[in-house]
Amino acid sequence: MNYFLGLFVSGLTRGSIYALLALGYTMVYGIIELINFAHGEIYMIGAFTALILASVLSIAGLDAISILVIASLVAMIYSAAYGFTMEKIAYKPVRNSQRLSALISAIGMSLFLQNYVRLAQTSNFLPFPTLIPRLGFLQQLTFQVTSAQFVIFVTTTVVMILLTLLIKFSRVGKSMRAASQDKTMAMLLGVNVNRVIALTFVIGSATAALGGVLISSFTGQINFYIGFMAGIKAFVAAVLGGIGSIPGAVLGSFVLGWTESFGAGYISSDYEDVFAFAILVLILIFKPSGLLGRPENKKV
C-alpha cells in the first residue's frame, strides 16, 4: 500500500510540473493555433535564471525560503519577457502566413534558445541547489512525501486555481476566451487581440518558468537540454487532455504523470517514456480531440 501511495505521490509531482508547462502550450494553441515548440526552452531558461540568482543570493546570505521565493519570481518575470519577445519576433510576423511557417519558426526558436544557453552557460550538467526547505510534518505520514513533492503539488494547485479564476471571471479572461473563439469578432468588440496574444505568451512563460525552478530544485541538476524532454512530455499531456482546453491540460498532465510513475513502478522504469508516448498514440487513435477537447468544428 505504501509503495502504491509513493508511486501515486510521485505521479502527482510529475503531473504538477507537466501541468505548469502544458498550460502554456494549450493557451497559446487555443488562441493562435500554434504549437510553440520553444516553450520547453522557456522552462529551461527559467531554471537557469533561478540557478544564477540562487547562487548570488546565497552568497548574500539569505535564508532558503527567501531565496526560493525571490529566485522563482525573478525567473518568472525574466522568462515572461523571453516569451513576450519570442512572440513579437518569431510568431507575430508570420501569423497571417501558412501554419507551417509558424511551426518552423517555433522549431528554429527552440534550437536557437538551446544553443544560446549552451554557449552562454555550459553544456555540462550544473548542480541545482535544494531551495525547498524541509517540512517537518511530512515525516509523520506513513508513506514518503518529500518536501519538494509537497511544495510542487501545492504551488501548482494554487497557480491552477488562480488561473482558472482569472480566465473564468476577469475581463482579461473573457477577452482571451473570446479571442480564442473568434478573433475578428473580438476585434469588432474592441478587444486588442495583439495584446491578448502577448499576454497569453507572458502567462504561459511565467508558469513554465515556475515549473522549471521547482523541478530543478527537486532533481538537483540542470543543463541546456532539460526543456526538450519536459516540453515534449507536457505537449503530450496537453494533447491528451485536449489541446486548447485548460482543464484538459491539467487532467492530461496528471494522467500522464500517473501513467509514467505507475508504469515505471510496476512494470519497468526503462520504459517510462514508452508509456508516455504509447498513451499519446492511443488517444490520437481513439479520441483525437483529447479527453476534454472540443471536437474540431468545421465551418460550412
Partner: peptide
C-alpha cells in the same frame, strides 16, 4: 457582422 458570430462557448 454577417452570420452573427456569437461566441458559441460563452
Amino acid at each position: 457582422p454577417e452570420g452573427r458570430r456569437i461566441f458559441p462557448y460563452l
